[in-house]
């Protein structure tokens, strides 16, 4: 335990020695773990397929960007804006979920996908006649997170060590990640977590047990949305710039791939899936590109294409050979292999 803590504390300096880019990549990877854990509540715990999850991330990001940037010259502190981002995302989740959660699973998937697109289209176009989102140009010069006099956006030196902005965000993200992990683990092993499990297993029987299934699904939706909102707010502050392009359908599918690859319902598996799908493409970017250059003298397959192919293949191959993920939750593994003979 202490060893892991030390390793996590030292990691950013080791990465910074290789290149600050790697600290940034790690930070984004942690954000994706946060997103995957949020989506895991919806997909993994409650069994609801949400294909528009990135919309909640977008909502959180824009709430932060609008309330802490020169866009409206509002500069609220992060401790007010981040929770607000979570709250607004949560409200969006409830507004979307309330009328649609009674739909059969695959319809819910499509409706959430449509919702994701609607949010993106609005973000893209709400620059006229009143400029709210600044349209496709996005919002820039977003305030970094400031804790007292400490700005996470700038570089400080302390005790001979250089703390760059990304390194400071890294520590913040690790703290948030720990909190989110604790929340997830505790929820899973609680009355609420059991109710979700029951709904996923057999909704009719769950209702007969006195579980208000609509309410529990809505709760899962709202919680997942809130986590997305928090991740989005931090993303906004960390990047200092956001635009609708960061919140396209592919991003939703990427997060879903992480959850599926890791193992729906298994918190540690999902985290591992997110790490894997965040880092492998980056590694490929730095290896496959130059390798192709060396072998063929030019780049035949762009790294970006490889990345996307990887996501696509991850989904297809996993469903075929390991539907419960690389690190399956015990219950999910049994569920996902169960019906091959029964039906």
């Amino acid at each position: 335990m202490a060893l892991i803590a030390v390793a996590l504390a030292v990691l950013p300096f080791a990465l910074a020695a290789v290149g600050t880019t790697w600290v940034r990549i790690t930070n984004l990877a942690i954000l994706f773990i946060l997103l995957s854990l949020g989506l895991n509540i919806v997909v993994g715990f409650a069994g609801l397929l949400d294909l528009g999850y990135i919309a909640f991330y977008a909502v959180g990001a824009y709430v932060y960007a609008l309330l802490a940037s020169p866009q409206f010259d509002i500069h609220w502190p992060f401790w007010a804006v981040v929770p607000l981002g979570a709250l607004v995302a949560c409200i969006f989740g409830v507004l979307l979920g309330a009328p649609t959660l009674k739909l059969r699973g695959d319809y819910l998937a499509i409706v959430t996908l449509g919702f994701g697109e609607i949010v993106r289209i609005f973000l893209n176009n709400l620059s006229q006649p009143v400029n709210i989102t600044n349209g496709p140009q996005g919002i820039s010069r977003i305030d970094p997170i400031r804790i007292g006099n400490l700005s996470l956006g700038s570089t400080d030196t302390l005790a001979g060590l250089t703390f760059s902005g990304p390194i400071k965000y890294y520590y913040l993200l690790i703290v948030v990640l720990l909190l989110v992990l604790i929340v997830n683990v505790r929820l899973q092993h609680s009355r609420i977590g059991r109710a979700w499990e029951a709904i996923r297993e057999d909704e009719t029987a769950a209702r007969a047990m006195g579980i208000d299934t609509m309410r529990m699904k809505l709760l899962a939706f709202a919680m997942g949305a809130s986590f997305g909102g928090i991740a989005g707010s931090i993303f906004s502050a960390m990047q200092g710039f956001i635009s609708p392009e960061s919140f396209v359908l592919v991003e939703s599918i990427m997060v879903l791939s992480m959850v599926v690859l890791g193992g729906m319902g298994n918190i540690w598996g999902v985290a591992a899936g997110a790490l894997l799908l965040s880092f492998v493409p980056e590694l490929l970017r730095y290896t496959v590109g130059p390798m192709q250059q060396a072998l063929f003298g030019r780049s035949i397959i762009e790294p970006e294409v490889i990345r996307m192919l990887l996501f696509g293949l991850a989904l297809v191959v996993m469903m075929m050979y390991r539907p419960a993920g690389l690190f399956p939750s015990a219950v999910r593994r049994r569920e996902l292999t169960r019906r091959t003979q029964a039906q």
Binding site: R191, G193, R194, E201, D202, V331, R338
Partner: peptide
């Protein structure tokens, strides 16, 4: 209609849902 992939004990624990109350906050804060 049991929760087939859960243990017998977990099945009965789910049956306690209606007579217990702990919510999200209580679960998170233990």
């Amino acid at each position: 209609r049991l929760f087939a992939n859960l243990s017998a004990l977990e099945n009965v624990m789910i049956g306690r849902h209606a007579r217990t109350r702990a919510g999200v906050a209580a679960a998170v804060l233990r």
